[in-house]
Design a binder for these strands. Structure first.
Lengths: 242, 242
DNA sequence: TGGCTTATTATACGCTTGAGTAATTTTTGG
DNA sequence: CCAAAAATTACTCAAGCGTATAATAAGCCA
């Protein structure tokens, strides 16, 4: 039994608004959702808060999404894409396998991935994975995609470097490297103040080189100019401020 | 203006209850809190739900904790202790540094740590770290404790193995190993169905050996009997079910 | 320009939450 | 056995939640 918004007669001024296109408005709402989760946590990401952040009123959300959950799923999809697209593009880019592997590692340390916001978002969504099959599917899809991309890349790399005997161990190398890179990402986003700028990136390069049995600097020193000059200092600037 | 629980006369049977000691009841409530977070997510961990899980009624919670937040903090403290205590005890245990390092790695793959519940709990609390200084302090405390324990262990290890030149790089090794182990923990708890029993543990041993420049099997083959016989098969049972 | 579609606002609804109060009943230690 | 304290019961309360619906304004097309 709906009630009239105001009893009668009174003329109230409504706020003016912009009539946006569907894709534009959806993207705004998704961005606002991610903003709110990162800033206030999953608890603070309420429909009203998200709407306020997007500069609209709450009711509008249901014009673009069937429910709040559906909007959250769309936001999760976008966030995961932002996390993995750079690495996957690097793996499938042009150049030698060695160069692509270097770019793959670099992608894990790009500003958008290392952003502390990302950990908050990632953790907030993890809780949904175990209970909501849709979230589980989105996660699994992205995870296997990046595993596959890296494994194919490593296969190319070993063939390129005349080490065919390592091809059989590609999967193990893939899991180990993924673990290492993910773990360093955790440390970077979770305790960023404990590490110097570029320290973890340099460590990632050296550790991957060691795990793959390469000489130090083999990966980080690129022959083309796409990376700019960021050589790894051979000396160790020991940093301890626990 | 309080009302009497029931108007008059009627004799209602109350549920019998157990009069627990303060510490016992607090532990029950903390365990119930963790159960609810792991099972229903941080959203479903309401005061009423937690009380039901603990087998008490809601009002009792405020007899033991000043607020729900304080109970959550206590739960986080207990959860983090469960995660790190095994590793730290291993690092500080008796035996050679090599043995202790092996136990340290093993601790990361104990059933209680690998339990998928742990990831849900860990992720649920991460969201609080950035906003609540108390949670941030608890996290930082545990993180630095395990970093310190591992770094000291590695120092002992390099000295024990007559490699004093590596002592200067202990911190780097510590961060790399922590990243690797944390990352493999992530993969184990997040996509446990993709890996065979013990596969990630064996991978952890081999990767650590490689990162530290040891021969394959150096760490996993223990001279004492505390570990039981779990030799790492030299052949690679390649597993691919993506 | 004027009408029509619909994106958007504004408001209301039903429900749950965390927190609080006070009286009552049960357990248990001294 | 008795008194102190633990625990239950049964409410209130304000705030917040996601959702639903009616009124309104914006902008496109005839």
């Amino acid at each position: 039994m709906p009630h009239p918004p105001h009893s009668s007669g009174e003329k109230l001024s409504r706020r003016t608004f912009h009539r946006a296109s569907e894709t534009e408005r959806r993207e705004d709402l998704i961005a606002a959702t991610l903003d709110c989760i990162a800033e206030f946590g999953i608890q603070g990401a309420t429909v009203r808060q998200i709407a306020a952040r997007a500069g609209v009123t709450g009711g509008l959300i249901r014009h673009y999404f069937d429910s709040k959950d559906q909007m959250m799923q769309a936001a999760y999809r976008e966030m995961m894409a932002a996390m993995t697209s750079g690495s996957i593009e690097a793996a499938n880019s042009a150049g030698t396998a060695k160069q692509r592997l270097g770019r793959f590692i670099d992608a894990n340390h790009s500003a958008s991935v290392t952003d502390p916001r990302m950990l908050s978002l990632w953790a907030a969504f993890i809780g949904h994975i175990r209970h909501d099959p849709t979230f589980a599917a989105i996660h699994r899809e992205n995870y296997t995609a990046i595993l596959t991309a890296l494994e194919n890349l490593l296969r190319d790399f070993f063939i390129e470097n005349n080490r065919p005997e390592e091809v059989a161990r590609c999967h193990h190398h893939t899991v180990a490297l993924t673990g290492l890179l993910d773990g360093l990402w955790l440390e970077a986003t979770l305790a960023d103040d404990l590490f110097a700028e570029g320290e973890l990136q340099a460590l990632a390069f050296r550790s991957v080189e060691t795990l793959l049995g390469l000489k130090s600097g083999d990966l980080s020193v690129q022959t083309d100019d796409t990376q700019g000059a960021d050589g790894i200092p051979p000396a160790d600037p020991l940093k301890k401020d626990i």
